[in-house]
């Protein structure tokens, strides 16, 4: 790795996120390849890379939603399942059915479910927390609206409020700025900074290169592998970006693809591009 993580700041507690030699392959497509990553507490990490670089896959793998082919992931020094309550998640907006019969408040309340455990219903206190989270994203007046009646930006704010309601220490956000108006984007980034000030750690998948250096203090340049990772100023170099976006490693992706195919299919063709 070009700039390997050099963090001695948090030697006492385990790092919010540590990934070692992680490889993830969908049935026929390898997506992540030998990923090493250590995220220090209190940082905002932007995950940047071209389409199909495996950004969302990384988030999903951390959440245990995808099987891991090799390597391991630790959240606060534990496997994901043991650290569930310390993780907040903001999925991509297209991933849910917006016609679903719930209103904005219901969605935010879902963020409390993890703490409730089985057989318990959300209490009044939970509802108050949910309302205050809605207030933080300036959506109180929309609390009783069915979610399909919200604009894209408002929907994203509801998702953010839900993540806030999870009261987690590590937040994973998948493209929170997609399809969002400028005011919402500013509001979201303000909330992210606030969370950071409270010592929370944020990992944000982002596709906009122009705003990335402004938003994040660390950047993970991803393209199937870690192209570069570290402080924004160190990572955001022309050479690194060209490495990530230039497709100069077509051999790597080709070999990985044909290898995965052979494994799953018993395909005997050689290196089909």
């Amino acid at each position: 790795m070009q700039s390997s993580s050099t963090t001695q700041t948090n030697s006492k507690s385990a790092a919010p996120l540590e990934v070692h030699d992680l490889t993830v392959a969908y049935t026929k497509r390898p997506v992540l390849y030998g990923i090493d990553l250590k995220v220090p507490k209190g940082s905002i990490v932007g995950v940047v890379g071209p389409n199909g670089a495996g950004k969302s896959t990384l988030i999903k793998a951390i959440m245990g939603l995808l099987p891991v082919s090799s390597g391991w992931i630790k959240v606060f020094g534990k496997p994901f399942k043991k650290a569930v309550t310390r993780i907040g998640y903001v999925p991509q907006r297209e991933s849910v059915d917006w016609d679903f019969p719930v209103n904005a408040l219901d969605v935010v309340l879902m963020g409390r479910y993890g703490r409730l455990g089985p057989f318990k219903r959300p209490s009044k206190a939970d509802k108050e927390i949910a309302m205050s989270c809605l207030e933080k994203v300036k959506m109180t007046s929309y609390a009783t609206r069915q979610i399909s009646n919200l604009s894209g930006g408002q929907q994203q704010r509801v998702f953010l409020a839900r993540a806030l309601a999870q009261e987690s220490d590590l937040y994973l956000m998948d493209e929170p700025f997609v399809g969002v108006d400028a005011t919402t984007e500013a509001a979201i980034i303000e909330i992210l900074r606030e969370l950071q000030a409270q010592g929370k750690t944020l990992i944000v998948v982002h596709h906009d290169l122009t705003t990335a250096p402004e938003y994040f203090d660390r950047i993970l340049l991803l393209n199937m592998r870690v192209v570069a990772y570290g402080k924004t100023a160190d990572v955001f170099t022309f050479e690194n970006l060209q490495n990530a976006y230039g497709g100069r490693l077509s051999i790597l992706s080709e070999v990985a693809l044909s290898r995965a195919r052979k494994k799953f299919d018993g395909d005997t063709r050689d290196n089909v591009g």
Partner: peptide
């Protein structure tokens, strides 16, 4: 190739 072109560490 992995170490030189893809910047993996030699132990990986």
């Amino acid at each position: 190739y992995l170490t030189n072109a893809a910047q993996y560490q030699t132990d990986h």
